[in-house]
Write a protein that binds this DNA or RNA. Sequence first.
DNA 1: TATTAGCACTCATACTAATCGAGTGCTAAT
DNA 2: ATTAGCACTCGATTAGTATGAGTGCTAATA
Lengths: 344, 344
Amino acid sequence: MDLDERKIKILTAVIKTYLETGEPVGSRTISKYTDLKLSSATIRNEMADLEEMGYILQPHTSSGRIPTDKGYRFYVDSLMETKEKEIEDMKEVVLEKADKLSEVLKQAAKLLAANTNYAAMVSTPEIHRNKLKFIQLSRVDENSILAVIVVEGNIIKNKMIQTEAPLDDDTILKLNLLLNTHLNGLSLEKINLGLITLLKEKAGIHTDVVSSVIDAVADAIRADENLEIYTSGANNIFKYPELADNERASDIINTFEEKKQLEKMVTERLMEDSAEKNGIQVYIGSEAPVPAMKDCSVVTATYELGEGMRGTVGIIGPKRMDYEKVMGTIKKLMDQLDMIYKST
Amino acid sequence: MDLDERKIKILTAVIKTYLETGEPVGSRTISKYTDLKLSSATIRNEMADLEEMGYILQPHTSSGRIPTDKGYRFYVDSLMETKEKEIEDMKEVVLEKADKLSEVLKQAAKLLAANTNYAAMVSTPEIHRNKLKFIQLSRVDENSILAVIVVEGNIIKNKMIQTEAPLDDDTILKLNLLLNTHLNGLSLEKINLGLITLLKEKAGIHTDVVSSVIDAVADAIRADENLEIYTSGANNIFKYPELADNERASDIINTFEEKKQLEKMVTERLMEDSAEKNGIQVYIGSEAPVPAMKDCSVVTATYELGEGMRGTVGIIGPKRMDYEKVMGTIKKLMDQLDMIYKST
DNA sequence: TATTAGCACTCATACTAATCGAGTGCTAAT
DNA sequence: ATTAGCACTCGATTAGTATGAGTGCTAATA
């Protein structure tokens, strides 16, 4: 049995009406509201076939059909192929420029949630080609010096270092020079044990300071340590009865709050060859790497702020989410993020 | 009618059993499970009185009684007077020391939630006596310089400043000197318009840089800008049926995610003369300044990390939360936070 | 041969009525 | 002042009965 033209038409009709209503859809509905001039009986036969093929199912004998994950998958894939429709109703204001990136991203999450009525997440960008740009030590008070570390992409990291005895200005100057001449422009891989020992040697009695600084550098460059995920609209899930029962809701909320799980989605996403259409990826139900999302669909996309700074945005909603709208909205947001970046 | 000894005994008995069971409690239960040797009929009469006085109520005619907000309030207040009981079952490990304060606080929230089975929040400390300690400008690349600002309590703020033309080392040195000599040790109030104009004048052609720096300083010192609230265990509310219906849960979750509302609780808390017993404050139902919490109780406490750095921790749960345990747990956490601070 | 009308069947949902029982308020006895 | 006793209330549970949307199958039809 194959998926001929007519079956496809019926399948998409089933899915589309289900997306709208959230109720199982019956043969009569399809026969009435499609351009196919077929009686409900014929539709019924076709639907039986579609069920056998695994695209739709009946919640119970003698009810209408709802899409299976396979059905959704088919729908989404065919959606990807059609040229993108424009989404007009996204509020136009959108992202105000804020001087802190984190503010922009928080706002982006809020915006996505508000526009789609689903839950949204936005991860901070992961720095890829992260070379050390600049180190500076300065004395703040008697026994503490401040290390400021800047890596490519202007990510800044501060670390307070306590010293046994106060360091005089001259020593600090020397250490600054030492660190900068040896470390600037290096990526994490290049800073190996040999180099570290060399530095420590050269630092003489101040090896402890040097190793503290190097710790901080490692910290700054290691991307996963700095990964933050901003979320918004978690409570939107209550708008969808199929997610709003206690157990499911609790799981989802928990995942949202704990972030650790969300990170999985984000990082898995970044691993792939993101040669996907538009860089948009859809996980339906258990396709997602997070078990708590088994009754949801997750749409993610990777944004890029240049210089290899890539992060992820995502929408989490019920399987019967409005995929077209979500994809459109995400695409719009991407443009906005692009703009923000370029105007800096 | 006054609240005599016996009424008090009955009232606390009602409340205690209700806290345990979550079900309306009837006269027979009380007569059986208290040391009062009274028949259910007598208890009934007393309960009628207590209802009239507003301490308890019946969800419907001919059901047991549950405490009103006034009842809870009475219970909590009398609890405050009794000497604090030790809570033993708080897991002993508790806070590991982390080098970032934010990590410690996140952990604290998680711990509170895990130990109490309620939702928890922890705010970052607000700096009170916040004087400027140290400013440093350094060139990072051609057209950008980095301003690092340290205020008392070692709060660090970074700001990238774009310059029209590259600044040479000498100018940066001069600006550094200028800013430090004029601003160090000053609190926000002292940095007035006169001083700012003076600085700008002295900066000559580099007024724009100076004003950027001053903006950043203002940012760093203004406490509310830096206020963060970490939450944990929001999904715990699903464990209490009276909070777990869609509407309520949605509201609470939303409040938790949006943070803006939580800030209200936190800041209101800090305003008061915190001469409360143990610095612990209990909001029952609509006593809380946040409408979404009207079916919850909120227990907050202010912690202090020395040097006037004060933040708030809070527990949010159903009105019938185990107040004793919660207060004990919070107190234990306070001790931990204290320790952490002192061992730094 | 593909389509459709017709019909018996299924099953979630809604509604009704009956029953149960925990708990009350009140009265009269102790 | 306390208590035993009793009629009463009202949510919760259960069972029984419709309702109706929707199905699968068969036989008639184009």
